[in-house]
């Protein structure tokens, strides 16, 4: 009996664990390995350079810029979709006619690829006939043709807006799921006690949405850390590296300059950041679980 259970565990786990180990775990460790070398991606020969790559990180002006941009990118990517998603969820939860259609509408962008989303927003920001400038011209009456994506001041912010547009639907859906899981009798208590709509939202709904909020925030952080495609499409990290994030910088160093060793060192940093965030997330998830069962 026990023996056959062992047999089946081995048989069933063999394929998934092997594939995962070979294509995810092993590369993860190799990344650490390459980060101590000066491999260029082609040459089979390379030297160990010790901590040189990591030392270089400290003096790499572009890396510092990328860290700053990644932070901005992540903070905005948490705030915008979360707040917008919460607002939309609360609006849709109050039984607006046509709710399901609106839900689909807000959610639709999530099924589009970053390439297409990038494409769409490039046109919104297009200087001559983009929607944004068209609207500004119509409102102000001036001949406004600012190239949003081509200016260092606005490039990153513009991409963040596009990104938020795509991600908001996801937060909204998670908040909606959280709202439907709030027991009806709690809301009925509010009604009996005569709470106003705003009081109901502030005192009951938002606190009870804490678990959903934790999930949304964590998801936003994780997704934003992965955010590469849309930046690559919309700005390519430019102009003048003004929208470089860590992921972007790592790609440039590794696959444009072929500094695979240095690129690996950046990816190690990226890994450590992700690890920290995930640990914070899991710790809080536990806390939330304890409170809300």
């Amino acid at each position: 009996m026990e023996r056959s259970a062992l047999y089946w565990r081995v048989v069933l786990l063999a394929a998934p664990v092997t594939v995962f180990a070979v294509l995810v775990i092993w590369p993860l460790f190799s990344s650490f390995f390459y980060s101590f070398t000066n491999w260029n991606g082609f040459n089979p020969e390379y030297d160990f350079v010790g901590l040189e790559n990591f030392a270089k990180i400290g003096s790499d002006r572009l890396f510092i810029g990328a860290i700053i941009n990644t932070t901005i990118w992540m903070v905005a990517a948490i705030l915008l979709p979360t707040l917008l998603g919460l607002a939309l969820a609360l609006l849709l939860d109050s039984k607006v006619p046509g709710g399901p259609i609106f839900k689909t509408l807000f959610y639709l962008p999530i099924c589009l690829s970053a390439v297409v989303v990038g494409q769409i927003w490039i046109w919104i920001y297009q200087a001559d006939w983009g929607l944004l400038n068209t609207v500004i011209r119509a409102v102000s009456g001036s001949s406004f043709n600012y190239a949003w994506l081509a200016k260092p001041d606005t490039s990153l912010g513009s991409v963040i807006v596009a990104w938020s547009w795509q991600q908001t639907g996801l937060s909204m859906v998670i908040f909606l799921a959280g709202l439907t899981s709030i027991p009806n009798d709690l809301l009925e208590v509010c009604e009996i006690e005569g709470a106003s709509t705003w009081q109901r939202i502030r005192i009951v709904l938002i606190p009870l949405l804490t678990p959903a909020t934790v999930v949304v925030v964590a998801l936003s952080v994780i997704n934003s850390l992965k955010g590469f495609d849309i930046l690559y499409i919309m700005t390519g990290g430019g102009p003048f590296h003004s929208s470089d994030t860590l992921a972007m910088h790592m790609y440039n160093e590794s696959f444009k300059k072929y500094l695979m060793g240095y690129g690996s060192a950046i990816s190690v940093v990226l890994f450590l950041i992700a690890l920290t965030i995930i640990r914070i997330y899991f710790r809080n998830l536990k806390k939330v679980d304890e409170i809300y069962g």
Binding site: P27, L225, F228, S267, F271
Partner: peptide, 23 residues
């Protein structure tokens, strides 16, 4: 083991880009 596998969901794929390219 389950946790190790699940955590793969959270990491940026860039982390394993270079070794996979090499592989």
């Amino acid at each position: 083991l389950f946790l190790v596998i699940i955590s793969g969901m959270f990491f940026p794929p860039q982390v394993i880009l270079i070794p996979l390219f090499q592989f």
